[in-house]
Amino acid sequence: MKSKGIKISMKILLIGEFSRLHNSLKEGLQQLGHEVVLVGNGDLFKKFPVDINLSVKVFNNPILLFFRKGIHKLTKFDIADFEVAYKFKKALKQLHNFDVVQLINEDALSIHPKLQILLLRKLITQNKNLFLMSCGDDYSNISYYLKEKETYSILTPYLNNTALKKQFYYCLKYVSPTYKKLHDFIYKHSCGVIASDIDYHIPLKNNKAYLGLIPNPINTDKIVFHPLEIENKIHIFHGINTLSQVKKGSVFFEESLEIIQKKHPNKVAIHTTHNLPYKQYIDVYNQAHIVLDQVYSFDQGYNALEAMAKGKVVFTGAEKEWLDFYNLKENTIAINALPKASQVIKNLEWLIENPNKLVEISNNARAFIEKEHNYITIAKKYLQVWEENSKD
């Protein structure tokens, strides 16, 4: 379908928020004069802002929480899903006549697929165009990476040790029959799917519904860049989310930091945290020169991009596919972190012994974010894809 030209003002509904992606996209769209409503649960402890809050409150009451955990242990069903479903059903009364509706993920409401299908069916009937993002785990990328076609993926720890199946429940659930039905339903009723980075782009390359990769939007107006100043020690930050630490390869960072601390106690200061709320997380890594993000990825996730915007030197996904996509050279924007402690240690020591490289990569990282991830530029790309692929 040829571009119809972007409307002067559109009503856009964004559903789901796991990383601040939809918040930054919303801000970019608003700067361009569009009306945007964001619906979500804030993503647990991260507490991202939303316009319509679906977070669980009633079933987090201590008494009800006890029964909730018991029922979940026996049935694997979270009765708090009914609270979220009720809130969304109530919100549906005002969620109509939007030009575009976008789901951040196939599990955008984070409730049982049967409930999601019922609610999404109603949402679709009262709005114009539904778009899906491949951002985070979904049927397409989990089923693809289970086939081990790539050197590694977030599933590598599980594929190497199936005893970790319980820890990978939230990944593997997407290839279960119930989530496959949700996947099929959304694909049938959507205008197409958009990938947010290389890790989600690779599994979709031959998918007929794929509309292409649009990089994560970063609000560089809100994120202040502070040029790195290295006075005494180099500060290294490792923020751990215990729900995802295995699939992010935190063990390789922990092993590396233990060795680095012993070898260079007078040159480094190491900061390791667990499950901090978003605002506290940002405060801690503000003092860091180096941020350790993840090893099982080809591209950067949202936390890494925000750290790069601040001018941090980030150990994250920066594989050849990413370098080729952006036409970059290795170790000039971010450090490609592989699932090998020896490789992490080697790169850390290279930076410790060459602090001028820290400053150089820091400046390059900020410039890269401003060029490739600016939230207004990215919002324009979304508008173009939505317009070119809308049904009316």
Rank of each mutant, 00 (worst) to 15 (best):
L103P: 08
N105A: 11
E106H: 14
D107T: 04
A108E: 00
A108P: 08
I111W: 11
K114Y: 13
K114L: 14
L115G: 00
I117T: 05
I117G: 00
L119P: 03
L119C: 05
L120R: 00
R121Y: 12
K122T: 05
K122V: 04
L123A: 01
L123T: 01
T125Y: 13
T125H: 14
Q126D: 04
N127G: 06
K128D: 10
L130N: 03
L130P: 02
F131G: 01
M133S: 13
M133A: 13
S134W: 09
C135V: 15
C135L: 15
D137Q: 13
D138F: 10
D138V: 10
D138S: 15
Y139F: 15
Y139L: 07
S140R: 11
S140W: 07
S140L: 13
S140H: 07
N141M: 03
N141V: 05
I142T: 09
Y145T: 10
Y145L: 06
L146E: 05
L146G: 10
K147I: 07
K149M: 09
K149W: 04
E150G: 04
T151Q: 14
T151F: 11
Y152E: 05
L155M: 09
L155I: 07
L155Q: 06
L155H: 06
N160S: 12
A163W: 09
L164S: 05
Q167D: 07
Y169F: 14
Y169L: 13
Y169Q: 13
C171N: 12
K173Y: 07
K173P: 06
Y174M: 04
Y174H: 15
Y174W: 12
Y174N: 10
V175L: 03
S176H: 08
P177K: 02
P177W: 03
T178A: 11
Y179K: 04
K180I: 14
K181R: 15
K181V: 06
K181H: 12
L182T: 06
H183A: 08
H183L: 09
H183M: 09
D184R: 00
F185Y: 15
F185N: 06
I186R: 00
I186K: 01
Y187E: 07
S190F: 09
G192F: 12
V193F: 02
V193N: 00
I194K: 01
I194N: 01
A195L: 06
A195F: 08
D197E: 15
I198C: 02
D199C: 08
Y200R: 12
Y200I: 07
Y200T: 13
